[in-house]
Computed example of a mutant assay.
Amino acid sequence: MPGKILITGGTGLIGTRLSEMLIDQGYEVAHLSRDPDKFSRYKTFRWDVKHPHIDDDAIFYPDYIINLAGASVASDKWTDERKKEILNSRVDSINLLYSCLQKANHHVKAFISASAIGIYGDSGDRVVSEESTYGDDFLANVSKAWEAAAWQVKDLGLRTVILRLGIVLSDKGGALPQIARPVKMMAGAPLGSGKQYMSWIHIDDACRLFIRAIEDTQFEGVYNAVAPHPVTNKEFTEELAEVMHKPLVLPKVPAFAINLMMGEMSEVVLASQRVSANKVLQTGFTFEYNYLEEALDSFYEKEY
């Protein structure tokens, strides 16, 4: 029987699509927001992570909490200030939920939190699984702190699931429109060596996985939320150009040029992560989009 879901980060890329899919499946959905919009389609409770506060009713509302809160990694240059915000927005939001769940007489059955495959650092062409060693760059350290915060919730006796998201593909935002823009303008090119692996997931599959983690109690602990067939950056760029019927005319964009443009944030596009989906597949979950071509077709086929 569908229940009530409380989502943090509900107006973000994944939160928006996930909310729609949950409603379609008969769930009730509420969001936590810094400034609840009276015109929102969803019931919205106020919370403030910087001055720790959550509406009392928010914690008594849900059967399940899905945590997607966190400042965007790719929208601004990584100044020291921005890096602090990327880290704190993730850790502090979970800490706030944890302290409220600890005190309240709630009926939450499970806590499902996003994390990122950035935790593995730059792992070259080695296939990494949930048991692999962690990286030591900025994004790896953010992901480690993020997951450590989520594990506290497990200490309260709640079933806790952490989904390490790959590059979430959507035409509504995130990485794909940014990668597609130069291709559209016939200026597409692989980045750096082009050999770095990109582990991706279609946004609908990512949302179906969150829903599955709610419904299937065998889900517990950490899972890689990636499609079964990662591709290199060069393959990604070529597939995208093909789907968009655009030629790739430029040589590779050298790593030093990307470093100049993006600074430390270039690790987002230059790090290689070849991530295994086996653990998720073993739960019986089936991906609608196993291969990149199918995923890209779903966004661009109508246009071209």
Score class of each variant (00 low, 15 high):
Gly3Glu: 10
Ile5Val: 15
Leu6Met: 04
Leu6Asp: 03
Gly10Lys: 02
Leu13Ala: 00
Gly15Thr: 00
Arg17Pro: 00
Leu18His: 02
Met21Lys: 12
Leu22Arg: 00
Asp24Arg: 13
Asp24Pro: 00
Gln25Thr: 03
Gly26Ser: 06
Tyr27Ser: 07
Ala30Ile: 01
Leu32Ala: 06
Lys38Ala: 11
Arg41Met: 03
Thr44Ala: 08
Phe45Trp: 02
Arg46Thr: 00
Asp55Pro: 00
Phe60Pro: 00
Phe60Ile: 04
Tyr61Arg: 01
Ile66Pro: 00
Asn67Gln: 13
Leu68Arg: 09
Ala69Val: 00
Ala71Val: 10
Ser72Glu: 03
Asp76Ile: 05
Asp76Val: 12
Asp76Gln: 15
Thr79Gly: 03
Asp80His: 03
Glu81Leu: 09
Arg82Cys: 03
Lys83Ser: 06
Lys84Phe: 12
Lys84Leu: 11
Glu85Asn: 11
Ile86Met: 12
Leu87Arg: 11
Asn88Trp: 03
Ser89Ala: 07
Ser89Lys: 04
Asn95Lys: 11
Leu97Asn: 08
Leu97Lys: 06
Gln102Val: 02
Lys103Leu: 13
Lys103Pro: 05
His106Trp: 04
Val108Gln: 05
Lys109Asp: 05
Ala110Asp: 01
Ala114Asp: 13
Ala114Pro: 10
Ile117Ala: 07
Ile117Tyr: 08
Gly118Arg: 02
Gly118Leu: 04
Ile119Leu: 15
Gly121Glu: 03
Ser123Met: 05
Gly124Ser: 07
Asp125Trp: 02
Arg126Pro: 00
Arg126Asn: 13
Val127Lys: 13
Val128Asp: 08
Ser132Phe: 04
Thr133Phe: 07
Tyr134Gln: 12
Gly135Met: 10
Ala140Ser: 15
Asn141Ala: 06
Asn141Leu: 13
Asn141Ser: 11
Ser143Tyr: 01
Lys144His: 07
Trp146Met: 10
Gln152Ala: 14
Gly157Asp: 12
Leu158Cys: 08
Arg159Asp: 05
Arg164Cys: 08
Ile167Thr: 12
Leu169Val: 01
Leu169Ile: 02
Asp171Arg: 06
Lys172Val: 02
Pro177Ala: 09
Pro177Gly: 05
Gln178Cys: 00
Met185Gly: 09
Met185Arg: 12
Gly188Leu: 15
Gln196Asp: 11
Tyr197Glu: 10
Tyr197Ile: 11
Ile214Val: 08
Glu220Cys: 12
Tyr223Pro: 01
Asn233Lys: 05
Leu240Pro: 04
Glu242Trp: 10
Glu242Ile: 07
His245Ser: 14
Val249Leu: 15
Pro251Asp: 04
Pro251Tyr: 05
Pro251Gly: 08
Val253Asn: 06
Pro254Cys: 09
Phe256Asn: 09
Ala257Gly: 11
Asn259Tyr: 12
Leu260Asp: 07
Met261Gly: 12
Met262His: 04
Gly263Leu: 04
Glu264Asp: 14
Glu264Gly: 09
Glu267Tyr: 05
Val268Ala: 12
Val268Glu: 08
Leu270Asp: 09
Ser272Val: 05
Ala277Phe: 12
Val280His: 13
Leu281Ala: 13
Gln282Leu: 13
Gln282Arg: 14
Gly284Lys: 13
Phe285Gly: 11
Thr286Val: 14
Phe287Arg: 04
Glu288Gln: 15
Glu288His: 14
Tyr291His: 15
Tyr291Trp: 14
Glu293Thr: 15
Glu294Ile: 07
Asp297His: 15
Asp297Trp: 13
Ser298Val: 08
Tyr300Trp: 13
Lys302Leu: 10
Glu303Lys: 11
Glu303His: 14
